[in-house]
Design a protein around this nucleic acid. Structure first.
Lengths: 251, 251
DNA sequence: CGCGCCTTTGAATTTAATCAATTAGTGTGG
DNA sequence: CCACACTAATTGATTAAATTCAAAGGCGCG
């Protein structure tokens, strides 16, 4: 119930959290006053589908993996969440259950508000409710885009789109291109794109051979993002010319 | 700008609209006072993806088809909307563009509120904002379920799930089963389930032969909903026994 | 009655999943 | 620091699923 950091410093962090955008310092203080801190170990899962949605979280540091599992064991990963982002927004309206699982990928720290606290805050500061709605609209749009992709595109395009989306959310510009700073297994990527581990691996290696991407200690480095956009958009197969002289230096 | 029906009667209708649930009669009056009526002819499209989201609608009567079209011409149908339901919720937060197209399937009548009006109402009656969030959460959950289906299920299951979802939203209990009271072409169904017209047609006819469904003047009659649930859930192919004596009476 | 649209069905083709086997990479403890 | 164990990734071969293409059939509507 008690915050393990002092309220002013938490306030400073909240200033850059979209859910609390537009609030004054005073208002942020009152928000911070109701927060509870939570620290998670790697692989620790803290939000389970079906359990009652009574806490809303904001990620301060680390990385969270949001997924859903079907009754027959299939899993889909919806997204990876990083600092500043909200999770468990459905707790803002009472009486719901979480529709997703959330698990820390690496050690992470969060702030948490109980349903009653966040509802009190929304009543006091309607700006928060509007922000929450804005975020929900964004989620709806993202989910619709994914439905569209899953329904109309082939796997190649979906995997490309998935990587592009991840770049947008977690990419870091580096010398040789854009680094996707996530520890993302082929299996994870497959579960985001709605395909299999094998197909994802094959595609990535084709693109590696074409020098569109490179692998760097398990992370993906996008050398030519524009090419990836082409792959994502167009129905242009164009296989790599039969693996010519491939004596290239290791990336 | 002016309502073509009198405010009290509109108030009576709004009483059963989820977006305005929990409001007093007085409050409903003030909501009705800001409404504009709109009437649509069949096939008329009134909300286009990309245009600025400045009006929120509630359907009074008729049927609306909500879809999105990709740059390369593929279309996905998200849902069909009937009386009492809201559309264009993203207009409740300013500065967005609609992510979807909406078109009247048959002649329909709507109520409309401009962004400024609905925001004023939400400020006056925070209950509306909470209701809107509740509806958005529902949409998020529905979209997630569809992503999950599209990503992990085979076409047979997706088509079955699509029909089941439509039953839940538009089904009417009749003597022989549940009637899906929509004029829904094979193409429409395919565009909802993320498959092709041909595959959808094949599946429906297999199920017709198995007496799980029947066709009634273009509409679908579900004779054995439970069977459809089995098809949707389980990976149980079980083809129809080689079309034995099929001298059955026409459905 | 005939025209257009939607639907059904067959056959060929393509795509991606599945299965199987190997290889690479990562971390751990001796 | 190296050997070992374990997990993740690659790749080939096969199979299954669904799309695509093609053609015929049915139904409603003017």
């Amino acid at each position: 119930m008690v915050l393990d950091a002092d309220i002013p410093s938490v306030t400073g962090v909240l200033r850059y959290v979209p859910l609390f955008a537009g609030l004054t310092t005073e208002q942020l203080h009152s928000v911070a006053g109701l927060a509870e801190a939570r620290r998670l170990k790697a692989k620790q899962s803290f939000l389970r589908q079906g359990s009652s949605a009574d806490v809303i979280y904001v990620v301060l540091g680390g990385q969270i993996r949001v997924s859903e599992i079907t009754s027959d064991g299939h899993e889909i990963i919806y997204r990876f969440i990083g600092p500043g982002q909200m999770i468990g927004g459905m707790a803002a309206v009472g009486g719901m259950t979480y529709p997703i699982n959330a698990q820390a990928v690496r050690e992470s720290s969060l702030l948490a508000w109980r349903t009653d606290a966040i509802q009190r805050l929304m009543r006091q500061h309607p700006e928060i409710a509007l922000n929450a709605m804005r975020l929900m609209v964004q989620r709806i749009e993202e989910l619709q885009r994914r439905c569209l992709e899953l329904a109309t595109e082939q796997v190649r395009q979906r995997v490309a789109h998935t990587i592009l989306r991840l770049i947008g959310q977690h990419g870091r510009r580096v010398a040789r291109g854009v680094l996707l700073d996530l520890r993302l297994s082929r299996q994870d990527l497959a579960k985001m794109a709605g395909t299999t581990l094998y197909t994802a691996s094959r595609l990535l290696n084709i693109w590696k051979r074409r020098k569109i991407i490179a692998f760097d200690t398990g992370r993906i480095l996008i050398l030519r993002p524009h090419e990836l956009v082409r792959l994502a958009d167009g129905p242009t197969p164009e296989e790599v010319p039969p693996a010519s002289n491939d004596l290239a230096a290791p990336v």
